[in-house]
Design a binder for these strands. Sequence first.
DNA 1: TATGAAAATGTAAGCGCTTACATTAAGGCG
DNA 2: CGCCTTAATGTAAGCGCTTACATTTTCATA
Lengths: 347, 347
Amino acid sequence: MTRERSPLTPESSVPTLADVARRANVSTATVSRCLNSPDQVIERTRNRVMDAVNELGYAPNFSARALAARHTNTIGAVIPTMDNAIFARGIQAFQEELGRHGFTLLVASSSYKEALEEEQIRTLAARGADGLLLIGYHRNPALHEFLRARSVPALVAWAYEVDSDIPAIGFSNRNAMADLARLVFEKGHRDIGMISADTKGNDRARDRLAGVRLAAREAAIDVDRMPVIETTYSIESGMQAFRQIMGWTPRPTAVFCGNDVLAIGALKAAKEMGLSVPEDVSITGFDDIEIASLAEPALTTVHVPHREMGRRAAGMLIDMVTKRTVPESVELQTDIRLRRSLGPPKT
Amino acid sequence: MTRERSPLTPESSVPTLADVARRANVSTATVSRCLNSPDQVIERTRNRVMDAVNELGYAPNFSARALAARHTNTIGAVIPTMDNAIFARGIQAFQEELGRHGFTLLVASSSYKEALEEEQIRTLAARGADGLLLIGYHRNPALHEFLRARSVPALVAWAYEVDSDIPAIGFSNRNAMADLARLVFEKGHRDIGMISADTKGNDRARDRLAGVRLAAREAAIDVDRMPVIETTYSIESGMQAFRQIMGWTPRPTAVFCGNDVLAIGALKAAKEMGLSVPEDVSITGFDDIEIASLAEPALTTVHVPHREMGRRAAGMLIDMVTKRTVPESVELQTDIRLRRSLGPPKT
DNA sequence: TATGAAAATGTAAGCGCTTACATTAAGGCG
DNA sequence: CGCCTTAATGTAAGCGCTTACATTTTCATA
């Protein structure tokens, strides 16, 4: 025979606000206030409620709260991938700072796919993110429209353009790369090549390439015959691309890499090919991840303050969300780390 | 004078299910079905509904859905930090696999703080995570109790113990390290030291240390006088620790590092001290992150299949959540990558 | 001690969905 | 051409919270 059980007291179900209220002999409103604005309730009652909370092991249901309160204290971020030191580092700092202010982070990654990014943004909005951190400017304009309609503020990071009307924190990838390139040209290099990350849907990569071209033009170098290879983010791809680019005529005496990971690959390939760096060929990177200064020879690269960017992005976004205000974009300073991998060309 | 506006048609508010239903001339139930189990509604109506959805730019409210449906298709993960290649890599794979099955990932990081981890776990549960990925076994048992009470299945990763009753995917840090240590002892080393990550609240670090001790005991080496330095996860800390450990008497001829990052630091410090590796001192790591094979000399280390672990963890967790079943723990194979940084001691 | 403002608490109406159950429409068959 | 089964759709009751507003309590002051 089936055991009978009162449906009114379902055993071991998770406690709700109402359970707490009942046990503490107060209304649900009071319990809610104890949790959200404790100073609105007198100490005696508050203690009673808190005791009930502890005894019951009560934890508020987030969805219900979000539904009723219409905000979530949650910030979403859509990054290309976590498996990339620069984002991992920046996002970690971002999260720490958010946590310090009682916000939670929701991360999604798009694997550098534009369509996926769009979906993730919509998902995050649907999940009630109060604000969004996005990487780079390049995306379907309808998306910003969508976010505006739902009044979800968005901040762009890892990029900076003076004239954009959407707030950002970052640096000019183009200018930073151009600075580095000028230095390379000053050393006397005329035959150069570039290994770039895939520029399709990645405006940072595009801007870095543009930076090299800009400086090249200034130095009266024929940009059109500069070999440019686009490839994916990995040491292995960097190696392949490097081998390929060194087959070019005239053979480059300096190879720009769109990021440090590609540069490390190039360095490794050079070593395998029996070329010495920088005597036979100079190699530069971008990002200044830890490995850059450890490589042999150490890598000349552009230093980017990833953690600072993450931390400050958090602050800005929190302001945008709580004060409903649109901040000035901030431009971070990058600087060139001149290390052994760059030298003058062989004469 | 204030403009009058019907409160029934608040302009520009975000569309709801009811709006869609009204526009498509069906009930809210039908709209809901179109979205969640499309084959339950006849094509003609479905098209009508979908059109309305598109025209309105409707996106379902996640919180409301979660509240009503009592599940979220969300998996939570609490990792020590994202700023660590092994977690970043594993979690990235984890997320990709979850995405492939329509699940979303929520990541929180605990900065290796036990209390913070506990809070994050509770938060994730409150946010309605259908399942949780946790790193390592070590934590307040009450937490597993808490999760059981709310019937939130949890899977432990990056660790594996035969006798534990909570499901896990990982490897035995102790055995893996012991294997490596045996190899080191076979080479003839008797004076050894270890640079470990902080073992407080980090059972992986503890197990790796235990592995070295185990193998040492087998080799009849006096474990008690082995210098062990615990430090934080960074190249810089690795350098400092190495300098310190090399001051020990007798000076170690081989130094075990709890992870590759510390080992890279040790390598760097050795170079600075004018010691050549492995002639003057052998150094080993753990994890086999990319940098390990790139270092100079390349690092002998334990290879761990992080991406595979992430991917399979996702599969297991999805099963646990959807089938409400408790899987067998799976032990992944690690293997030793013998590279230049390990050699016999000077005679 | 009566009085009224301020503080504390309670009441109850949603928030936007899902889903059990009720109702209606559509076929298949004798 | 009714009758019954099955497929499609509708109705409405929550899910667990927050919060505007109503009510009660407290307490300084006259």
